[in-house]
Nucleic acid binder design. Structure first.
Lengths: 127, 127
DNA sequence: GAGGATCTGTTAGTTTTCTAGCAGGCTGGC
DNA sequence: GCCAGCCTGCTAGAAAACTAACAGATCCTC
């Protein structure tokens, strides 16, 4: 189950923006939201998200800067697991293949080397 | 932007189940939902999703069998793109690496061969 | 030190989501 | 026929999400 599963539509959008940017003020989040709600509404949501423990803030010269409360690594893993579960029958290999297949053109030589290395590593460990 | 972004919490949960199972009756969707709403509520949501065009149904001896209205391939791509965007700075390679890294143990030899082949292919085309 | 700009918190109201319950149709067994 | 079981559609009310507007605080400029 995804980490974002108990959240409302708006809360999820806001949390996504925070994951994407790492950290952001209420105004920045507001600017990134698709259908331009009121700034006040965004702030209210940020406070709610903080209450629920999904977000934290620190004061930075007079304004609040928000960031996700979970470690990025954990969030990434959770997001991937959810996609693999619901769209790839639980097979990470299928997901990885789809990823490679649809982005083949944009991968650099370094990317490919890195992925090859990971595969070799898995091969050695799996033996 | 994810295909599921305009949906409410429940609708998203329901749609996820349909993607996971491919097709399902209202009762099956109901059984898979985490916090057990009423069967009637689930049916209402399915009808709403159908109105919005996210889901379609066909009658199968007296009951409705629902399935996602978009092709699975498109849904998969969209889901991956969204995760890559919001959690991996838009880099499919990073996402693929995370996938390989965290699932290395469960990958079979065949999986690894297939992925190697994809990487080789990308290498040839990218040259 | 008054006015403006920018931020937060709170309040109260609207809108949407979410839900249970009931009515009606079809099927199969008694 | 008639009852039980399962399904759909509908309706109305509760709950939650969402929002605008206002009030207070701080900083900067004139």
């Amino acid at each position: 189950m995804s980490i974002q599963n108990g959240l409302s539509r708006r809360e999820r959008q806001i949390l996504d923006i925070l994951f994407k940017r790492g950290r952001a003020t209420a105004a920045e989040v507001h600017a990134d939201l698709p259908d331009r709600p009121s700034n006040s509404a965004v702030r209210a949501h940020l406070r709610t998200l903080e209450e629920k423990g999904h977000v934290k803030h620190e004061a930075e010269d007079l304004r609040y800067v928000y960031s996700p409360a979970v470690q990025p690594a954990k969030a990434r893993k959770s997001a991937l697991r959810h996609v693999v579960e619901t769209f790839f029958e639980g097979s990470p290999a299928n997901a990885a293949a789809a990823l490679l297949d649809s982005s083949a053109a944009s991968l650099t030589g370094d990317d490919l080397d890195r992925l090859s290395a990971l595969i070799d590593k898995a091969r050695r460990e799996g033996r």
